[in-house]
Protein backbone atom coordinates (compact mmCIF):
# COMPACT_ATOMS: atom_id res chain seq x y z
CA UNK A 1 0.00 0.00 0.00
CA UNK A 2 1.41 3.35 -0.98
CA UNK A 3 -0.01 5.95 1.39
CA UNK A 4 1.94 8.77 -0.26
CA UNK A 5 0.11 8.57 -3.59
CA UNK A 6 -3.48 7.58 -2.86
CA UNK A 7 -6.08 7.35 -5.59
CA UNK A 8 -8.18 10.44 -5.05
CA UNK A 9 -10.52 10.22 -8.00
CA UNK A 10 -11.64 7.51 -10.40
CA UNK A 11 -13.36 8.05 -13.73
CA UNK A 12 -14.85 4.85 -15.05
CA UNK A 13 -15.99 4.47 -18.65
CA UNK A 14 -18.64 1.87 -19.51
CA UNK A 15 -19.15 1.32 -23.25
CA UNK A 16 -20.99 -2.00 -23.20
CA UNK A 17 -24.46 -2.92 -22.04
CA UNK A 18 -24.30 -6.57 -20.97
CA UNK A 19 -24.93 -7.38 -17.31
CA UNK A 20 -21.28 -8.17 -16.60
CA UNK A 21 -19.99 -5.02 -18.30
CA UNK A 22 -22.36 -2.71 -16.49
CA UNK A 23 -21.90 -4.38 -13.12
CA UNK A 24 -18.12 -4.22 -13.41
CA UNK A 25 -18.51 -0.46 -13.65
CA UNK A 26 -21.12 -0.21 -10.90
CA UNK A 27 -19.26 -2.42 -8.42
CA UNK A 28 -15.98 -0.59 -8.96
CA UNK A 29 -17.72 2.79 -8.85
CA UNK A 30 -19.66 2.02 -5.70
CA UNK A 31 -16.55 0.56 -4.10
CA UNK A 32 -14.68 3.79 -4.80
CA UNK A 33 -17.48 5.90 -3.30
CA UNK A 34 -17.43 3.69 -0.20
CA UNK A 35 -13.69 4.34 0.17
CA UNK A 36 -14.25 8.06 0.05
CA UNK A 37 -12.77 8.37 -3.45
CA UNK A 38 -14.34 10.97 -5.75
CA UNK A 39 -16.14 8.99 -8.46
CA UNK A 40 -17.35 9.77 -11.98
CA UNK A 41 -19.08 7.13 -14.11
CA UNK A 42 -19.31 7.81 -17.82
CA UNK A 43 -21.70 5.72 -19.92
CA UNK A 44 -21.31 5.59 -23.67
CA UNK A 45 -22.43 3.49 -26.66
CA UNK A 46 -24.30 0.36 -25.50
CA UNK A 47 -23.35 1.20 -21.93
CA UNK A 48 -26.08 3.85 -22.10
CA UNK A 49 -28.63 1.09 -21.50
CA UNK A 50 -27.51 1.11 -17.86
CA UNK A 51 -28.83 4.65 -17.37
CA UNK A 52 -31.83 4.61 -19.73
CA UNK A 53 -34.84 4.27 -17.41
CA UNK A 54 -36.79 1.79 -19.54
CA UNK A 55 -33.77 -0.50 -20.02
CA UNK A 56 -31.56 -0.30 -16.95
CA UNK A 57 -33.20 -3.10 -14.98
CA UNK A 58 -33.66 -5.35 -18.02
CA UNK A 59 -30.05 -5.94 -19.03
CA UNK A 60 -29.01 -9.27 -20.53
CA UNK A 61 -25.82 -11.22 -20.78
CA UNK A 62 -24.64 -12.59 -24.13
CA UNK A 63 -25.02 -16.35 -24.59
CA UNK A 64 -23.52 -16.59 -28.08
CA UNK A 65 -19.80 -16.06 -28.51
CA UNK A 66 -19.16 -16.17 -24.78
CA UNK A 67 -16.66 -19.02 -24.28
CA UNK A 68 -16.55 -18.57 -20.50
CA UNK A 69 -20.27 -19.22 -20.12
CA UNK A 70 -20.97 -22.47 -18.31
CA UNK A 71 -24.03 -24.49 -17.49
CA UNK A 72 -24.96 -25.17 -13.87
CA UNK A 73 -22.52 -27.93 -12.90
CA UNK A 74 -19.59 -26.42 -14.76
CA UNK A 75 -19.86 -27.82 -18.29
CA UNK A 76 -19.24 -25.36 -21.09
CA UNK A 77 -22.39 -24.07 -22.71
CA UNK A 78 -22.28 -25.06 -26.40
CA UNK A 79 -22.57 -21.96 -28.59
CA UNK A 80 -25.38 -23.56 -30.55
CA UNK A 81 -27.54 -23.77 -27.42
CA UNK A 82 -27.29 -20.01 -27.21
CA UNK A 83 -29.49 -19.56 -30.26
CA UNK A 84 -32.47 -21.32 -28.65
CA UNK A 85 -35.22 -18.72 -28.14
CA UNK A 86 -35.39 -17.65 -24.50
CA UNK A 87 -31.91 -18.89 -23.66
CA UNK A 88 -30.52 -15.39 -23.28
CA UNK A 89 -33.42 -14.30 -21.06
CA UNK A 90 -33.11 -17.44 -18.97
CA UNK A 91 -29.35 -17.06 -18.52
CA UNK A 92 -29.75 -13.39 -17.63
CA UNK A 93 -32.44 -14.26 -15.12
CA UNK A 94 -30.14 -16.84 -13.53
CA UNK A 95 -27.27 -14.33 -13.35
CA UNK A 96 -29.49 -11.76 -11.65
CA UNK A 97 -30.69 -14.40 -9.19
CA UNK A 98 -27.13 -15.31 -8.24
CA UNK A 99 -26.23 -11.65 -7.82
CA UNK A 100 -29.27 -10.99 -5.64
CA UNK A 101 -28.11 -13.78 -3.32
CA UNK A 102 -24.91 -11.79 -2.77
CA UNK A 103 -26.93 -8.66 -1.98
CA UNK A 104 -25.94 -7.03 -5.29
CA UNK A 105 -28.75 -4.59 -6.07
CA UNK A 106 -30.56 -4.02 -9.38
CA UNK A 107 -29.02 -1.31 -11.58
CA UNK A 108 -31.46 1.44 -10.57
CA UNK A 109 -30.86 0.82 -6.87
CA UNK A 110 -27.10 0.64 -7.44
CA UNK A 111 -27.21 4.12 -9.01
CA UNK A 112 -29.16 5.24 -5.91
CA UNK A 113 -26.39 4.00 -3.63
CA UNK A 114 -23.61 5.53 -5.73
CA UNK A 115 -25.21 8.96 -5.98
CA UNK A 116 -26.24 8.90 -2.29
CA UNK A 117 -22.52 8.77 -1.52
CA UNK A 118 -21.72 11.65 -3.87
CA UNK A 119 -20.74 9.64 -6.98
CA UNK A 120 -21.61 11.29 -10.29
CA UNK A 121 -23.17 9.64 -13.33
CA UNK A 122 -22.70 11.03 -16.84
CA UNK A 123 -23.92 10.16 -20.31
CA UNK A 124 -21.88 10.54 -23.51
CA UNK A 125 -23.29 13.18 -25.84
CA UNK A 126 -22.19 11.54 -29.05
CA UNK A 127 -23.73 8.18 -28.14
CA UNK A 128 -26.94 9.90 -27.01
CA UNK A 129 -27.21 11.54 -30.43
CA UNK A 130 -26.36 8.34 -32.24
CA UNK A 131 -28.99 6.24 -30.42
CA UNK A 132 -31.51 9.14 -30.53
CA UNK A 133 -31.92 9.28 -26.76
CA UNK A 134 -33.22 12.39 -25.05
CA UNK A 135 -32.41 13.63 -21.56
CA UNK A 136 -35.88 12.53 -20.41
CA UNK A 137 -35.00 8.94 -21.29
CA UNK A 138 -32.25 8.92 -18.69
CA UNK A 139 -32.41 8.09 -15.00
CA UNK A 140 -32.77 11.07 -12.67
CA UNK A 141 -29.40 10.04 -11.20
CA UNK A 142 -27.60 11.28 -14.32
CA UNK A 143 -25.84 14.58 -13.58
CA UNK A 144 -25.23 15.57 -17.15
CA UNK A 145 -24.50 14.76 -20.77
CA UNK A 146 -20.85 15.33 -21.59
CA UNK A 147 -18.67 15.68 -24.66
CA UNK A 148 -15.32 13.91 -24.63
CA UNK A 149 -13.58 17.19 -23.83
CA UNK A 150 -15.86 17.82 -20.87
CA UNK A 151 -15.25 14.30 -19.64
CA UNK A 152 -11.51 14.93 -19.55
CA UNK A 153 -12.12 18.21 -17.71
CA UNK A 154 -14.13 16.32 -15.08
CA UNK A 155 -11.41 13.69 -14.86
CA UNK A 156 -8.57 16.14 -14.31
CA UNK A 157 -6.67 16.30 -11.05
CA UNK A 158 -3.77 14.86 -9.07
CA UNK A 159 -4.31 11.25 -8.06
CA UNK A 160 -7.04 10.80 -10.67
CA UNK A 161 -7.40 7.62 -12.72
CA UNK A 162 -9.34 6.84 -15.89
CA UNK A 163 -10.56 3.25 -16.06
CA UNK A 164 -12.14 1.66 -19.13
CA UNK A 165 -14.08 -1.41 -18.10
Amino acid sequence: MDQKFPIKKVNIICAKGAIEDVYATLVMGNGAVMEGIETNLFFTFFGLDAIVKSRMDKLHTGVVGNPALRLPGGLRMPTLLGIIPGMESFTSWMMKGEMAKLDIPPVSEFLDLITAGGGKIYACKLAMDMFKFKKEDLSEHVSGILTVGEFYEHAAGEGSQIIFT
Binding site: M34, E35, G36, D112, L113, A116, G117, G118
Partner: peptide
Amino acid sequence: VKTFYQLFPGA
Protein backbone atom coordinates in the same frame (compact mmCIF):
# COMPACT_ATOMS: atom_id res chain seq x y z
CA VAL B 1 -27.58 5.56 2.77
CA LYS B 2 -27.31 9.28 2.04
CA THR B 3 -27.58 10.14 5.74
CA PHE B 4 -25.10 7.35 6.51
CA TYR B 5 -22.54 9.04 4.24
CA GLN B 6 -23.20 12.33 6.02
CA LEU B 7 -22.86 10.83 9.51
CA PHE B 8 -19.59 9.05 8.71
CA PRO B 9 -18.01 11.17 5.96
CA GLY B 10 -15.38 9.66 3.69
CA ALA B 11 -15.45 5.91 4.07
